[in-house]
Design a binder for these strands. Structure first.
Lengths: 177, 177
DNA sequence: CATACCATGTAAGCGGTTACATGATTTT
DNA sequence: AAAATCATGTAACCGCTTACATGGTATG
């Protein structure tokens, strides 16, 4: 997800200043801390391209941005755009192991184990963190927090399943030779 | 996955020239076509940093690069590095929908459906393509091709599972209100 | 008053994409 | 001979990260 698109959607909620966009983005998507500088440079490009404009309600202290008509259109279009959904990401581990397999001398089975253990640890840590965040609303935190956790877990579990498959295919290929 | 790391691993297989690295990279990881220009600029940086050097076996036509000791070390370290495995990617759809949900006026249930249909179509198309690629070795293509397909499918299915979860949570939250 | 946080910015460098330029080699 | 591919490069721009600079505001 590009920060540019996220900014457009956040401004479709309400006019905001740069720093507020940083805070909202991190909270709503569970993202790691974003460099604020990037928000400002992106806003400049968006303004240049006519997707956002400066709200006169701003002052010396804060520069408030609002969506233009074109900007709102872009935000809503991005929400429904399915082109960037599945294909681009793939699996981080898969790419790495398919390359590693081609290197003579690499003990691929051991590398698989190393990554499996790390991914299992990450799942456990993520779930533990979820229980730790259990607070005010709902069974365990609010809807957004829960869904952020589940998105991370879902991706990691997909990679774990792929590792199992890869291992099985390797064994079966060796047996065939 | 960064192209820089992939280049190091590919050179751990064998000394290669830029164009060869492009071809190998796309074949081994199932990547979309890479801009060759980036390979050359990356090789320049790697050379500058002492991770690769020019093999005298090259000529006017081809510039052959080889790993330095430091470069080999970096390649092997990247293969075993689990730090970049799970956390960074998350889910493309999840980030989008968590933002979209916050926008007043967006019919989130319909947006969920739009993305679900697109993801299901992508899975079907990927599987169909897999059967189309059925060729020489093995039941359906070679090991690499099969695992590339499975990596794509695994990630998309994770996103589909997350969509189901998200929909269920939305319904249950509404019932609670 | 000192420290932390709010808020806006600039600079340098890597990473990636699109596009273009140039010429050699191979294929049809 | 024409067209496709091989092979190397350059330029411009966006995107992201790290780091630094500057000053206001709020809190202890």
């Amino acid at each position: 997800m590009k920060i540019r698109d996220a900014i457009l959607v956040l401004l479709a909620r309400q006019p905001s200043h740069g720093y507020q966009l940083k805070v909202d983005y991190e909270r709503l998507t569970g993202s790691a801390p974003v460099n604020v500088g990037q928000i400002y440079t992106t806003l400049e490009r968006l303004e240049r391209d006519g997707l956002v404009s400066r709200d006169p309600a701003g002052n010396d202290r804060r520069v408030i941005y609002v969506l233009t008509g074109q900007g709102l259109k872009a935000a809503l279009a991005w929400i429904e755009d399915t082109g960037t959904s599945g294909a681009q990401g793939r699996s981080a581990v898969a790419g790495k192991l398919l390359l590693a397999m081609a290197v003579p001398g690499v003990e691929i089975d051991r590398v698989i184990d190393v990554h499996r253990v790390a991914l299992l640890d990450t799942v456990r840590a993520t779930r533990r963190q979820a229980r730790g965040t259990a607070g005010s609303a709902g069974p365990e935190g609010n809807l957004e927090s829960r869904m952020i956790i589940e998105a991370e877990v879902a991706v990691i579990e997909a990679e774990l399943r792929w590792l199992d498959l890869f291992e099985a295919e390797l064994r079966s290929t060796r047996r065939r030779m």
